[in-house]
């Protein structure tokens, strides 16, 4: 019990943040985090003390989240082909605008838009982007957490980042338009 608290509870802030990004809902995130810790506690004997406890908790969290989604009969992210196609279509659009002259756009990004743009990403991209760019996990860790091959981690990451950039640009442009109209 003491050992578990020492090893696992120190990552609570990180685990909570990931839960928040996955669920996009505070109450859900809190419940998910609690479930994650209970599960982790029950299976603490399976944790290899030499490995990264944070990544281990992330994997449990992700699993608990997907189970929850399935239980509630919501879309199962990552298996939805249409979601992928839609994202691909948007990407084609992104490619068209990425070399736009507004290269300074990202400098004007508002923090709230950063959250909004991230939360708009389809889950299959959101999870890898958050793990890599926010939680600073290695590709190997991400592959383990999400149960994906390294190649898929890489491709999802680069697509996810492009989508995120596109989202940020749209939100920032929108904000500026509203600002000048006022």
């Amino acid at each position: 019990m003491r050992e578990f608290e020492d090893q696992a509870l120190v990552h609570l802030d990180r685990v909570f943040h990931l839960a928040l990004r996955l669920t996009r809902n505070r109450t859900e995130a809190e419940d998910l985090v609690q479930e994650t810790y209970l599960r982790a506690f029950r299976h603490f004997d399976q944790f290899d003390p030499g490995t990264n406890c944070r990544a281990w908790l992330f994997a449990i969290l992700r699993n608990a989240f997907l189970n929850q989604v399935k239980r509630q009969g919501r879309e199962v992210p990552g298996l939805d082909e249409r979601e992928l196609e839609r994202a691909e279509a948007e990407l084609a659009d992104v490619n068209g605008t990425i070399e736009s002259p507004e290269e300074e756009l990202l400098k004007r990004v508002v923090d709230a838009d950063l959250v909004a743009a991230l939360d708009q990403l389809p889950l299959i991209f959101r999870e890898v982007v958050v793990l890599a760019d926010v939680e600073e996990c290695s590709y190997k860790e991400i592959a383990r957490i999400c149960g994906l091959p390294m190649g898929t981690v890489m491709s999802r990451l680069s697509r996810g980042r492009r989508l995120l950039r596109r989202g940020l640009e749209i939100l920032t442009r929108e904000r500026r338009r509203l600002g000048t109209a006022r």
């Binding site: 809190e30 985090v33 959250v115 760019d133 926010v134």
Partner: peptide, 26 residues
């Protein structure tokens, strides 16, 4: 973009009440 996410994404810490809730659940 990477720097933006690492430095500017608001990160709220887990609420103290949640920490307590988890402790007592454990």
């Amino acid at each position: 973009l990477r720097a933006l996410l690492r430095t500017r994404l608001p990160r709220e810490p887990a609420p103290a009440a949640l920490r307590e809730r988890i402790r007592s659940a454990l």
